[in-house]
Computed example of a mutant assay.
Amino acid sequence: MIGNDLKTGETSAPGAFVSPLIVILELYAFGFALRILQQSDLNAQTIVAMLLFCVFAFTLITGKGFPHFRQRGKAMLFLFVAGYFSLQGANLSGEQREARLAELRKSDPAAYLVELRNVDEDRWFVELRQLDPEAHAKEAASRATQSHADRLAACTDEKIGLAYVMIQEDVRRSLRAPSTAEFPGRFDAGTRNMGNCVYKVIGQYDAQNGFGAMIRGTFTGTTEYSPERGSWRTLMLDVQG
């Protein structure tokens, strides 16, 4: 019995030492392979590292995956390595792109603007102002025209009812007892879309006066809708009653 226990102890002790060593060697080989791939094709290395990161994350969360990496501890170690190379690849890719753009800006501004537009539209527009003022002026005019068209397209007659609802808060603020104000479900005749996102609203309300009696009053106002912010602003309001 004692001999068997000693024999078991002799085999388990080396195994406990060799197993972590094998994992370290596997990690080194994994990192080395990604480094070699990075030197030959940075984009491919980044994609591979990100895919492996997802695989190891799945294994770490579920305990499933490739048989060799089903141990969550091992999967976590490889997850760290894959995550490191994913971030490094992304950073290096960005640095390489910026270096290429800087060189292209000096040697071929037209090609630089074409490539930059595919990468960053806002940055391209800023650079266009310096490198090609005439094209920038045309682009600015085109954007302004499109922005105005989009604004008008968002301000249709369908928003008349919403304009009637949104102006009611300002009507309440002008009353002695705002909390008692009630509005009919329909606006009065004359309410309309005046164009350029401005709406004229005519309506009635019922609210208590200073003596507590319910009275009926009328109001007329104009309110403007801002499609860019999705908000309303009262321009003029006349409350009678």
Rank of each mutant, 00 (worst) to 15 (best):
Q96I: 11
I202N: 15
G210S: 13
W232L: 04
T222Y: 11
L25F: 09
I167G: 00
F69W: 08
R35F: 15
K64A: 14
N196P: 04
Y225M: 04
S179A: 14
R70G: 07
S19H: 08
Q96K: 13
A82W: 07
R229I: 02
Q88G: 10
H68N: 14
G15P: 02
K106C: 02
A49T: 13
E169A: 15
R105H: 07
Q96G: 15
W124H: 09
A29I: 05
I61D: 03
P184D: 13
Q208V: 12
G89F: 04
K200Y: 14
G31S: 10
L21I: 07
K159F: 09
G83N: 05
F78R: 00
I47K: 14
M1N: 13
T191K: 06
I22Q: 12
R186P: 01
I2P: 03
G230R: 04
V114G: 04
L77T: 01
P184C: 12
Q240D: 15
E26C: 08
F187Q: 09
H68D: 15
G15T: 14
E158Y: 05
L52F: 10
A135M: 02
R70N: 14
T180F: 05
F80R: 06
M1I: 09
P20M: 04
F30E: 00
G230F: 00
I215V: 14
T180Y: 02
Q39L: 10
L51P: 03
L101R: 00
I160W: 08
G94E: 11
D41N: 13
K64I: 09
W232M: 02
Q88C: 07
C155N: 00
K64S: 14
G161C: 04
E169D: 15
T220V: 12
L60I: 05
L237I: 05
Y112E: 04
D122N: 10
V114A: 11
G195D: 06
L52I: 02
F58R: 05
S231L: 10
L79Q: 04
L175E: 08
M236Y: 13
R216K: 09
D206H: 11
I2L: 15
M166P: 06
I22R: 09
F85W: 11
M50W: 12
A141M: 07
L21V: 09
A33P: 03
T234F: 10
V126M: 05
C155W: 01
